[in-house]
Design a protein around this nucleic acid. Sequence first.
DNA 1: CGGACTGGTGAGAATGATTCCCAGGTCGAG
DNA 2: CTCGACCTGGGAATCATTCTCACCAGTCCG
Lengths: 149, 149
Amino acid sequence: METRYNRDEMAARATRQAKPSTRRGSMQREAIAAYLEAVPVHPTAEQVLRAVRKKIPGLGLATVYRNLEALVRDGRASRTVHPEGARYDTRVDPHHHFTCSGCGVVENVEPGPQEAAWIKAFQRVSGASVHRIVADIQGLCGACRRRQG
Amino acid sequence: METRYNRDEMAARATRQAKPSTRRGSMQREAIAAYLEAVPVHPTAEQVLRAVRKKIPGLGLATVYRNLEALVRDGRASRTVHPEGARYDTRVDPHHHFTCSGCGVVENVEPGPQEAAWIKAFQRVSGASVHRIVADIQGLCGACRRRQG
DNA sequence: CGGACTGGTGAGAATGATTCCCAGGTCGAG
DNA sequence: CTCGACCTGGGAATCATTCTCACCAGTCCG
């Protein structure tokens, strides 16, 4: 209950968008998308909630999940499963992830040059068709490596 | 309560194992390990429970999780996170997974030949050290491809 | 033999992430 | 202004996983 929309924000969003007839997204959704784009880490839903609540104090967790799911469905974000909860990301083109087992940070990694050939060979041998490939590289980032051993 | 150990099974296990003094594992653990090794799919904990209960009817879910965790800790199995629950596997050497989005089956994929060079380049550029790399290839397996489109 | 100890067990409670449900609020069209 | 489509926040519900606990089998020590 008590939705308390912010008129100014809504107006600003409407201005930003080209189409006034079909209302797409909401202040909450755009705030979530903006946060995702602004932040280099790959946050969990909980992290998104905490961060966006600074802009929209009443924000609910269900709304965060709902909008993250919508962003993924619309191709504006991608979701990656991780041992400790799903991570979200605005990059939707093919890329991989590096996870530091020291500090838990997740960074993007560019695809390798020979990956396509490997996939092609796999498709030929197995008879399967490949839609996408996601690699998770696990290790210690430079900072953690220096700090630890 | 009511543990109801099966004497014959316990004896058989003891005979199978070389060391009689240090008791390692239990009938339940060995049954779980045997199932994992026998099955080509990458089962979830729930699937393991259902299958091994045919041998050990009273088996509890907590025991399955406990022993899967122990097997992973001892390097006898590996665990992979997946959008729908964790999957377990007796292969512990470097390899990747193919997931069919049609039937949900998970198959092993051998590492590509140029993977090592790619990792080496990544380590050089990022300053990180890599422990392991797990790729998940998503697509349609041959059977689902023929059945669908 | 007998009793303390260890390690494993099954049941059910607890947890944590995610989704569902619902009674609203907001906006645009008519 | 009213209607309807869409979206919201909160709390209940769900689901996988972990924790807690009373208990039991085998071992060690006397």
